[in-house]
Amino acid sequence: MDKYLDCTGEPCPLPLIKTEKEMNKLKIGDKLFIELDHTCSMTNIPEWARKKNYEVETEEVDFGEWQITITKTN
């Protein structure tokens, strides 16, 4: 099941800690949508997810607000 994570207003490293926890719960093929507004996490999370060989997509949805989509592939 896909999961939505709202991390707006949360500073580094909270978004990545939450992402890590959620990704562990997901099954292969599931997607995690993360909404965030902290620039550090915007570099942190995609880097971490790519290292894990997950599929990552990022989009700036508003000024200083991004949505990251991670697909669990393994």
């Binding site: 490293p13 800690i17 890590e20 942190n44 880097e47």
Partner: peptide
């Protein structure tokens, strides 16, 4: 560059 993250991420995430 974030000095906090540089010293924290290796222990928290291995980055």
């Amino acid at each position: 560059i974030c000095f906090t993250a540089a010293l924290r991420d290796p222990f928290l995430f291995g980055l």
